[in-house]
């Protein structure tokens, strides 16, 4: 949170206001899209726009959860394992190939179990950080390894293949049931509305929680200075546990969307998403040191990263180049965060 943002912004003049603005990353997105357009004209087509919005939804939800944890000066590396574990647990319940509750009737219990897995892992992370006083990095690295291994082990009991397929139509239809199809010029915008709607609800809910509720104020206070927060009577431990639990549930929700999209519960689902999630949140401007961050910033960061990724995909860039460019952009964002604080706060 930036309580005196207005005063600080005024110190930096136009450039300062621009760089400190909540819309700085959105402006970067617009400039980047304009710069890329001559080389990838299809970028501005309705079809690609629809693809980008659909691609954003799962990443945005898990990034929103990560924002809660980063604001309390933590980090959650276990999100990838939560995505995978929730996917295989849910799939094992509802799969029509020998699930515990096969078919459409198993969808709701499966979704609840998936969210439960996310909440439980988040709770475990939060308890380990608060009760055992362990660093979040170490705790979530360990739980990431443990639950990623558990997801693979669990899968071996439910299929002879490497993933659990044959999921019921009610679940796989999440991406197919309500699709907006809108011809725009020569292109057609195809948008799966349910995942987008879920992402919008999560974003609005998280934004309201952080900006308008007591819990939100506690989260910022704990992230800014844990000792001061405790002296002020804020339940620091509960706040930290809740932030990790929210993050776990968000990761599980992403697991639901991804496994529905791929119509499969895979134990390696989301394995490589960590860089994108933390990168998006940091690009948005949320501080890795805690106490500062907004859902709107995360939304901008996710948009920028998806835009970058889409452009590079359309250009046929190699994986190595994509890694280099993404890594450079995330590093630049972290550096920019440090610089803009030093320049416009110190001066």
């Amino acid at each position: 949170m930036v309580p005196d943002a207005g005063r600080q912004a005024r110190r930096g003049g136009f450039a300062g206001r621009l760089v400190r603005s909540e819309y700085f990353v959105l402006l970067l997105c617009a400039l980047y899209a304009l710069a890329a357009y001559p080389f990838v004209p299809v970028l501005f087509s309705a079809e690609v726009a629809g693809n980008m919005i659909a691609d954003m939804s799962p990443l945005l939800i898990v990034a929103v959860g990560q924002t809660f944890v980063l604001v309390i000066a933590g980090i959650d590396l276990s999100i990838t394992a939560v995505i995978a574990l929730s996917a295989v647990v849910g799939a094992s319940i509802m799969t029509q190939a020998g699930g515990y509750l096969p078919g459409n009737g198993g969808v709701l219990p499966a979704i609840l179990a998936m969210l439960g897995v996310g909440g439980a892992v988040g709770l475990l992370n939060g308890l380990s950080v608060t009760r055992l006083n362990m660093p979040p990095f170490l705790v979530t690295l360990a739980t990431r390894m443990f639950f990623a291994g558990l997801a693979i082990w669990y899968t071996t009991f439910h299929t002879t293949s490497s993933s659990i397929a044959d999921l019921p139509p009610l679940f796989t239809g999440l991406y197919d049931f309500v699709v907006l199809t809108l011809p725009i010029g020569e292109s057609v915008l195809t948008l799966p509305l349910l995942p987008v709607l879920i992402a919008v609800i999560v974003v609005i809910g998280a934004h309201v929680t952080l900006s308008r509720t007591m819990l939100g104020r506690w989260i910022y206070a704990v992230g800014a200075n844990r000792r001061t927060a405790r002296v002020s009577g804020i339940p620091v431990e509960s706040t930290i546990i809740l932030a990790f639990t929210i993050c776990g549930v968000c990761a599980a929700l992403t697991g639901i969307l991804m496994s529905s999209r791929l119509q499969t519960g895979s134990p390696i689902l989301g394995e490589n998403v960590l860089l994108d999630v933390i990168g998006a949140v940091v690009i948005g401007g949320t501080s890795l040191f805690g106490g500062k961050g907004k859902i709107v910033w995360t939304l901008s960061g996710v948009l920028f990263l998806v835009l970058l990724d889409t452009t590079l995909k359309l250009l046929g860039a190699s994986l190595f180049l994509i890694f280099i460019i993404k890594g450079a952009v995330i590093l630049a964002a972290a550096t920019l965060d440090t610089l803009r604080n030093r320049i416009f706060v110190e001066h």
Binding site: V42, V48, L262, S266
Partner: peptide
């Protein structure tokens, strides 16, 4: 040639397929 490597990420590969389709 439009080349892409998904790094064993099925979701990413699905997005790559959609991008390839958009590129006609």
């Amino acid at each position: 040639i439009m080349e892409a490597i998904s790094d064993k990420d099925d979701n990413k590969q699905f997005e790559q397929v959609k991008a390839a389709i958009a590129q006609k």
